[in-house]
Amino acid sequence: MYDTKRVESIVGQDDIKISARKVQVYYGDKHAIKDVDVDILDKTVTAFIGPSGCGKSTFLRCINRMNDTIPIARIEGQIKLDGEDIYDKRVDPVQLRARVGMVFQKPNPFPKSIYDNVAYGARIHGLARNKAELDEIIEKSLRGAALWNEVKDRLNEPGTGLSGGQQQRLCIARAVATSPEVLLMDEPCSALDPIATGQVEELIDQLRQEFSVVIVTHSMQQAARVSQKTAFFHLGNLVEYGDTDDIFTKPRDTRTEAYISGRIG
């Protein structure tokens, strides 16, 4: 187990977007996340890797309080966004989620038109004062998600009619449209074919210039390709956190090494 001081030495204090300290998550009696400390940098892609059931997705869902929607989940410890505790009583999760967006494992476009899908977040948060501004947000988000050229002529068709990869990029566009500061991605490519995966990965790399991106992935190759920082989770513990290159080339923990070389997983 590594200590907090090491975390702080890895990253410079100034760029820290999210810092988590002593985070515990319980699902009923199950202790799903144990004592996790981690700092996530601004404008960086951070990958969470680890075997299934290790808690990486659970931890991800803590960052925008999606676990609030599960009645049996209980969270202890502290997660700070720009120095403010997101589990403070005064914090409205709705306001938090506007700043910390999320993309899910399975593409989940709403049963509405492509336009309305992207406009959804902008509308509920009141980001546009008129139709022209909304149109602008839609176009920029779709361009940002590298989907504009493919759908610009059929914005009024249902989002569910797109291919899997397009649907996932639509979901990313939908998240981008609310201008978040952090984008959480929960295995965004696991339901996609290799070509679509390539497109989404390319997109993630570009998104880094605007946001801090946290991606949970099953695939070590993907983590290596898209991320600058990697955190390895095992059985609810954060085992190792550091530069992606270091984790994959010279892991310090034997469990990390075992996972990377394919002996556990």
Partner: peptide, 18 residues
């Protein structure tokens, strides 16, 4: 209605009623 629809909407910062 699949849970993923709800997650998608909450994840964008919508309230329950929205």
């Amino acid at each position: 209605v699949p849970q993923s629809m709800r997650d998608g909407s909450y994840g964008l910062g919508a309230t329950k009623s929205e």
